[in-house]
């Protein structure tokens, strides 16, 4: 692998730009999507079709005072938003955008992504606790129990993919699925994996919605019950960083889903594979995230945990066994 300093710098700047643009414009996409679903127009004042809206929002957030209320744990309160943002950006390092665009083809990239995702959870927990606010603490407790519950089925479904590809390297998993959609893990014809892998895909997708604390699983920032959850005491860019972290987590989740199940940069019909197919896939997935958010109301925390413990975990375990059997039998 080329170890020149320019390569590192190029990827650093590229990843930062990709992350920043996504964090800014997914907010716009979200608002536009919500507006379309509710048959409104959405942001339209700032620039053509409201395209300058993220810039205006960013300027507003940055020019506001970074208020640290009395009685909060100052250091942790200031650090938590950063901790929410950093793992999300770091995750981008191992994502294979195409055959040649990947900052680091790490052997254990799948594991790294999950390790970093759990750091993001720590940010929510510490941020909520440091606020010294009842709503924030309740929200952190919910977020943590939810994330722990959904990490299990997620990891178990990932194991099925790892077993099929025989690697924990995202790049190799993607290469393994090249050559048309019938090679993708979700519809894989080989060994009859299509029988169970679509269930894996659905479980994985539900879990990634839950892991990113998106509606209908946004228990952590349930506006109607908990003001704004762990973000209650945060204003200005502290709030902004949490929001950006949330959107980046969505991007990472979509990238992971696209790589693990949808063949990465592979074209469904074997034509011109490349980074554009990867981008198309992740934006379709992100659109689905937005679509889901504006379709379903928020669930209750009990139902949420029941869904994970009673349905997703048994199903993912059964799935794991069947997949292993299929690999062994054929």
């Amino acid at each position: 692998m080329d170890t020149s300093i320019w390569r590192a710098l190029f990827y650093l700047v590229g990843i930062m730009a990709f992350a920043g643009l996504n964090a800014a414009y997914l907010g716009w996409c979200e608002r536009k999507g919500a507006a379309r679903i509710q048959r409104r127009i959405g942001p339209c004042e700032a620039g053509y079709g409201g395209l300058w809206q993220p810039l205006a929002d960013g300027l507003k957030l940055m020019s506001k005072q970074l208020l640290v209320p009395q009685g909060v744990d100052g250091i942790i309160f200031r650090l938590a938003p950063v901790l929410a943002m950093v793992p999300a950006i770091t995750s981008m390092v191992v994502i294979p955008f195409s055959e040649n665009i990947q900052a680091r083809a790490m052997e254990l990239s799948v594991l790294l992504l999950f390790a970093l995702a759990s750091l993001g959870m720590l940010a929510i927990l510490l941020g909520g606790w440091a606020s010294g606010n009842k709503y924030a603490i309740i929200s952190s407790a919910r977020a943590v129990s939810q994330n722990l519950a959904y990490e299990i089925p997620m990891l178990v479904t990932v194991i099925t993919v790892v077993m099929i590809s025989g690697s924990m390297n995202l790049r190799e998993i993607a290469i393994d699925q090249q050559g048309g959609f019938w090679h993708w893990n979700i519809f894989r014809l080989e060994n009859g994996h299509f029988l169970t892998m679509w269930i894996s895909f659905i479980i994985f997708f539900i879990c990634s919605v839950a892991e990113t604390n998106r509606a209908p699983f946004d228990m952590a920032e349930a506006e109607s019950e908990l003001v704004a959850g762990f973000m209650t005491e945060y204003g200005s860019m502290g709030f902004g960083l949490f929001m950006m972290g949330e959107y980046l987590n969505i991007v990472v989740g979509a990238c992971l889903t696209a790589t693990l199940f949808l063949g990465g940069w592979d074209c469904p019909f074997g034509l011109t594979p490349g980074v554009w197919w990867f981008l198309i896939k992740i934006y379709v997935l992100i659109f689905t995230f937005i679509w889901i958010r504006w379709t379903y109301p928020r669930t209750q925390i009990y139902r949420l945990l029941n869904l994970s413990w009673k349905i997703l975990i048994p199903f993912s375990l059964a799935n794991l066994l069947i997949t292993a059997a299929l690999i062994k039998v054929f």
Binding site: R36, R40, I41
Partner: peptide, 21 residues
């Protein structure tokens, strides 16, 4: 029921805007 819900919002997505600007 989840799929039904998604289909409803998908249908609404392509209908014209009803709000008054």
């Amino acid at each position: 029921s989840l799929v039904t819900g998604l289909l409803i919002t998908a249908r609404e997505f392509f209908k014209p805007v009803v709000t008054e600007q």
